[in-house]
């Protein structure tokens, strides 16, 4: 078991024949992901990486039966690609592209919601179910199979956290990089219940950062609904207010969205909050020992 994706998930790639799309599609296939085709307008009918290329997502879905799309198109075309996927019946779109305008994502996400399509990202490493299915750009080798679920706004902190968990002798069920833009797809609040319901996930690592209030919403949700242990780290305790820390959404504005308030809310919800990401592995070992 796992959440959202597994070894049977059929995946197409939007922006399949581009440099990034090609490189990562190949890496995903090497990991074992069932990439069943891709979409690049005007290249329909070609074969790329041994898989068929289609002009439209509709064609790709009707021919391959894919349910997930991994999106690598340039930032200006992300909204178009997401909305096309939604209307073509894709169930989950994983948006890797960085730098999509906020207004475009607002429009695209509203449309995805209308068609009940889930989205992950944008500007994220993607999702991986360890040793089964990798849809994204993360280094697959560090995700050993196990019973820890992971949700993170940051790509490299996903790797850092997963690596520590595995070094402690545990492994990952599914890891989801949700991205750090102001508007993102699936967030903690939607992913936590999936991990709660997954019998193969025994504990959850949640990595957040400054800006917005998704972590606060998560804390409220955890308090009411999550029985599995949660370990959390919030990046940006030392970030100056009013400065954008790399991610478009990582900014403390008007005194709101600080690491301190998020850490306090999570602690009050019974979450094991660590002050440094270097402590994630140890904290997981501790909470797992108590189970």
């Amino acid at each position: 078991m796992s959440i959202l994706v597994n070894k049977d998930t059929k995946v197409i790639v939007q922006g399949f024949t581009g440099k990034e799309g090609s490189f990562h599609a190949e890496q995903c296939m090497a990991y074992g992901t069932k990439i069943v085709g891709g979409v690049t307008p005007n290249k329909g009918g070609e074969i790329h990486l041994g898989q068929p290329v289609f002009n439209t997502v509709k064609d790709a879905v009707s021919t391959t039966g894919a349910t997930v799309s991994m999106i690598f198109v340039p930032p200006a075309f992300v909204a178009d690609a997401v909305m096309e996927a939604a209307e073509a019946g894709i169930e989950l779109a994983v948006i890797i592209t960085e730098g999509a305008p906020v207004r475009d994502m607002q429009k695209a996400k509203a449309h995805a919601n209308k068609f009940n399509m889930k989205t992950i990202g944008p500007n994220c490493p993607g999702i991986i179910t360890a040793e089964e299915c990798k849809i994204g750009i993360m280094p697959g080798m560090i995700f050993k199979k196990g019973n820890i679920g992971l949700i993170s706004k940051s790509g490299t902190l996903t790797y850092e956290g997963a690596n520590q968990v595995c070094n402690e002798g545990f492994g990952i069920s599914t890891a989801v990089g949700i991205g750090g833009d102001p508007i993102i797809g699936l967030s903690y609040k939607q992913l936590l219940p999936m991990f709660e319901a997954d019998p193969d996930t025994h504990a959850i690592v949640m990595i957040g950062e400054i800006g917005g209030d998704l972590e606060i919403q998560a804390a409220a949700y955890i308090k009411e609904h999550i029985t599995k242990p949660v370990v959390a780290f919030i990046a940006g305790q030392t970030a100056p207010a009013g400065k954008r820390m790399g991610h478009a959404g990582a900014i403390v504005s008007g005194g709101a969205g600080t690491a301190a308030e998020k850490m306090a809310a999570l602690e009050a919800a019974g979450v094991r909050v660590v002050v440094s990401p270097a402590e994630i592995g140890k904290a997981i070992a501790e909470v797992m020992a108590k189970l």
Binding site: S152, S154, G180, A235, Q237, G246, A259, V275, P277
Partner: peptide, 12 residues
């Protein structure tokens, strides 16, 4: 490398 790890490094 990475904004999250960069902040996490400062915090550590």
């Amino acid at each position: 490398n990475g904004a999250g790890l960069a902040m996490g490094t400062m915090d550590t």
